[in-house]
Design a protein around this nucleic acid. Structure first.
Lengths: 346, 346
DNA sequence: GCAGCTTTAGACATCGTTTTCTAAATGTTG
DNA sequence: CAACATTTAGAAAACGATGTCTAAAGCTGC
């Protein structure tokens, strides 16, 4: 039942535990080729597995990193996680998944546990909850963690003052909206996300900026409330039927892809054809976007790469390198079947 | 930079580290109310966080559990993972995610690392790769892990001889096929999964059993090869156009939901109407299934619950309880818009 | 008032590593 | 060949907890 320890390896090899440790841990310390060989063989025949807990205790490095997401089931986060896991694995780290479910208490509890485990790094994939009373508490805990030597990175707009790598949400929304304008659309609706979600608002900002730059008034009745879910998208468009025809949007820009899918399904129930009657686009470019019928025009974010970059930023911090406070990842507009030109004639 | 240890807490409280440990670890050992109070206060003012690595080393329990999946991005696994994370968190465990990407070497490497960390439990969410040379190697490693005290559970058909909780894939496929027969279909195609994937084959068995029970010959040209991906589903149906009309299937049963989505999109490109020209159904009931247009008839598996049950089974093993070798979770046919009756008249 | 319990606290060994410090063996130089 | 570097190996002290074993009090009861 009990695993073999380095002591037994040392005995079998006829050396001290010090030298055994030196060859096992690949320490930068000279060991003659012959003794090294003996230790390796002993370890192999005993099927030795070094105790990572003991090692971590001594080296003050757990080689554990955690990724905090709202919900690992959300393709957005799933994609990021897979990038995180990929490079964590390459670099010899284990990835711990923490679903916060948007519950401050669950998040705080996880942070406490991660502190107990002396996690080397934390990645906040989702944005904060925005509750001021809570975010102060969060701020404190993070402060303590960082003093303890834990590296922290956010992958989205966040109240935390820590290094961050973020997709260019503003720029993406700006570009997409400009493109819709180019296509001739003037009545462009936007489906928002949860009011307290920073990303959602930044995208909204980009949309509004494009309109103002083009000298177009932002019509409140074209600001549809969504919540970044499928259901939310479906419901958001239900009201459009009640608008008099000339006021109806000719394009709908959904704050994220899930919402866009909901919008598509909602419109179909309304009997509106996409893109014939109305163009639809999203934000995120989840894998499904390109296989939908019609396939979805959207803003592409390389989420896996975002996850990867996040881990690299963590590792840089752990290596005591100087690290840029904010790194922006470009986003690109991908045009598919769900959008088309609009001209008054049509 | 260095975290405070229990020694400093003990000093501050004016007690020995033994008593400090006893109140911190909530050990079952009498400590007077007044000293307990002193220790709690000292811990609070010092903002003490017990070192889980040190604790784990002593107690021989890491409170880490790992879930091994092919790809956390796959909604099937994502759902299971979320169930795992949920109860792991409730029960005071941290969840480590391991994407194997169907690479034996990556899986083996993870198992080695998990052994190093003295993980308390492992959950195999996906099925094995079926390579005999590899599965023997796997068998050995698992054997060692279990002897070491690590609990192991599989959530699918697997070559490993360990406790398992599984969805009733056979029964689900059987029921679904029977239902299609009830609806009047006689030419029912089945889109397979990867040949070496056990679940895929079990579902195929269920389909074939239903047909043989009904006295219907299984036509090889209605066995379409897929690979459990969207693209695979799209491609699988391309050949159907070349079949003479009377031999064309009136229903297509896809081995999983992703494939079904691919099938839907493939059929649309072919110009076939669903369900008017052909009924389509899947297996799994991923969240998307009900918002598709048409919404997808499928076999529902409560994957989150599968994950939850998996963890409970792990914990039972860790508590040295007797554990059933195989626990089967029922599946249910959910009828939505993508299937309808068929009669020769139509 | 004393033998014998029960309750509570402390000293110390221990878990399995890494790492510093010391020392032996070997190699180099004049 | 003496004197001194350079390699290589070992002894022992951490790291931060838990848990056993021992002992000091505080209570019984006779």
């Amino acid at each position: 039942m009990n695993a073999v320890s380095i002591l037994e390896v040392a005995k079998k090899a006829g050396v001290s535990i010090a030298t055994a440790s030196r060859v096992i841990s690949k320490a930068n310390y000279p060991v003659s080729a012959s003794t090294r060989q003996k230790v390796m063989e002993a370890a192999a025949t005993l099927n030795y597995a070094p105790n990572a807990l003991a090692r971590g205790m001594k080296t003050r490095r757990s080689n554990l990193i955690a990724v905090l997401v709202n919900d690992n089931t959300d393709p957005y986060f799933a994609e990021i996680m897979s990038g995180v896991e990929e490079v964590a694995n390459e670099q010899g780290y284990l990835t711990i998944i923490c679903n916060t479910n948007r519950e401050p208490t669950k998040e705080l509890h996880y942070l406490q546990t991660l502190r107990d485990y002396r996690a080397d790094g934390l990645i906040f994939a989702g944005s904060g909850f925005g509750l001021p009373t809570y975010s102060q508490r969060l701020e404190e805990v993070i402060q303590v963690l960082r003093e303890q030597g834990t590296a922290v990175v956010t992958l989205s707009q966040h109240s935390l003052q820590v290094p961050s790598v973020q997709a260019d949400n503003f720029g993406g929304a700006l570009q997409m909206t400009k493109r819709l304008l180019e296509l001739g659309h003037r009545l462009i609706a936007f489906v928002t996300g949860p009011a307290n979600l920073a990303v959602a608002n930044v995208r909204l900002q980009g949309y509004m900026m494009a309109l103002t730059e083009a000298g177009i008034m932002i019509s409140p009745q074209l600001l549809l409330t969504g919540d970044f879910t499928l259901k939310g998208g479906e419901q958001a468009v239900q009201g459009l039927n009640y608008l008099p025809s000339p006021e109806r949007p000719t394009a709908i820009f959904a704050g994220n892809d899930e919402t866009a899918l909901g919008v598509l399904s909602g419109l179909r129930r309304l009997g509106w054809q996409v893109p014939a009657d109305v163009s639809v686009c999203g934000f995120g470019d989840i894998p499904l976007a390109q296989v939908m019928v019609p396939s979805l025009t959207t803003v592409h974010i390389d989420l896996r790469d975002l996850g990867r970059k996040g881990v690299f930023k963590l590792l840089s911090q752990l290596g005591h390198e100087e690290v840029a406070n904010l790194e922006v990842m470009p986003t690109t507009v991908i045009e598919r079947e769900s959008t088309t030109t609009f001209s008054i004639a049509s």
